[in-house]
Design a protein around this nucleic acid. Structure first.
Length: 383
DNA sequence: AAGTCGGGGGC
DNA sequence: GCCCCAGACTT
């Protein structure tokens, strides 16, 4: 027991103890993935939370668990079913890796989730920090995380300068993360690795925030270098600015008998393995392009163009509505599907909205279904 | 080390 | 507008 007034065994324990005590009083305790040691749920939450904020994840997490309550159900599902549940959450390689890992665990591990951090780390989509988080929350292992929250806390508390994405800076931060882990002691509540890890996440999310941190309530304010030197606003060092390149595409809404043509994207790359609309260069002739697909179309109307911003480029999207011209009554048959390397299918817009589609395509489809409803046509944003 | 992967929150 | 978020993977 570490009763009040005791001198802690080490400096690192003092750090951990402050955090743990703060977490018990002021931390978050009712997130949907807390209060369980089900490794499947812990793993799912950690993957969804990669580069995605808690508030965004929660509804996806609940829906996903409803569909796939355990490892076996996820492994048995088709990739398409998994992608449909992930649709809108972004970073779709996470979902592909999740599915691949589920099938690997069901096959190779006999459905049992691996307990050792090195084994967890071997799963696709699981890096060093995520493996540690799973090992901590599911199995109580002593392992260090280093996510965006922890990087921000450490760079401020210890006055570590330089962009944390830079290798040398990240190495320093990992070294701190390992060194500050509480000493494992089964008899001491003060060295609870789960509470410590959750404390780092909660402190970063609720107090040590990027903008307007609440330093007055912080359990680390007496030892925080950035607070002492009034540098909280300039640490961590921001990412170096870069100019985003801009690309331009046309998305084709090819309509026949109320159905639209969807095209499955390749398994890797942008929107990998998602259903999308046929895409062509914005300056291409749409009639000729569709002739190459083996379909005869008439341009109907244009929706307003809009811009979708990715991490590394901007995409200017021009949606075009096209009506198929055909005297044949069965041009919706499989044989009449346009030839292409990609899988294609005709779908009712309502069904397409339930499929695994990227957000900009959802936006176009919603706009289209709204336009075809019997009320006034609103002006599309932009342009 | 740098580039590739989304979408949304918050200001 | 801009920056960042419970990062991992490829080149």
């Amino acid at each position: 027991m570490n009763t009040g007034g005791d001198i802690p065994d080490s400096v690192s324990d003092s750090f951990a103890i402050r955090l743990i005590q703060w977490q018990r009083q002021h931390g978050r305790h009712h997130l949907p993935w807390q209060n369980t040691r089900d490794a499947y749920r812990v793993w799912l939450s950690e993957i969804m939370l990669q580069q995605t904020q808690v508030g965004t994840v929660i509804p996806y997490y609940r829906r996903f668990l409803q569909c796939f309550p355990d490892m076996q159900s996820l492994a048995s599902a088709s990739l398409d079913e998994v992608m449909a549940q992930w649709s809108g959450l972004g970073y779709y390689s996470r979902a592909r890796n999740l599915h691949k890992a589920a099938r690997r665990i069901a096959g190779e591990h006999g459905g049992i989730f691996p307990e050792e951090v090195d084994a967890i780390r071997q799963l696709p989509g699981v890096g060093r920090s995520t493996a540690a988080a799973i090992a901590v929350f599911a199995f109580g292992k002593r392992a260090a995380i280093l996510d965006g929250n922890v990087k921000r806390i450490f760079s401020r508390c210890f006055g570590i300068e330089g962009y944390p994405g830079e290798k040398s800076v990240e190495t320093q931060l990992w070294q701190k993360a390992e060194a500050l882990l509480p000493v494992k002691d089964e008899n001491s509540m003060e060295c609870d690795i789960e509470t410590y890890t959750q404390a780092l996440m909660d402190l970063g999310a609720t107090l040590c925030t990027r903008a307007h941190p609440r330093c007055g309530s912080c359990p680390l304010r007496l030892e925080c270098i950035a607070f002492r030197d009034n540098r909280v606003g300039s640490l961590p060092t921001p990412r170096p600015r870069k100019i985003l390149p801009e690309r331009e595409v046309a998305l084709l809404l090819v309509v026949a008998q109320g159905r639209i043509l969807l095209e499955k994207r390749p398994g890797t790359g942008i929107w990998g393995a998602l259903w999308s609309l046929p895409e062509m260069q914005a300056n291409e002739n749409v009639i000729e392009y569709c002739m190459q697909l083996g379909i005869n179309v008439r341009p109907m109307s244009q929706m307003g163009a809009f811009t979708h911003t990715f991490t590394h480029f901007r995409l200017r999207i021009h949606p075009l509505i096209l009506q198929v011209i055909s005297r044949s009554p069965d041009h919706l048959s499989p044989a009449a599907l346009p030839q292409s390397g990609n899988q294609r299918i005709w779908m009712m817009p309502g069904d397409a909205l339930k499929a695994a589609i990227p957000s900009p395509v959802r936006k176009v489809l919603l706009q289209y279904t709204f336009q075809t409803e019997p009320h006034e046509i609103p002006a599309m944003a932009d342009d």
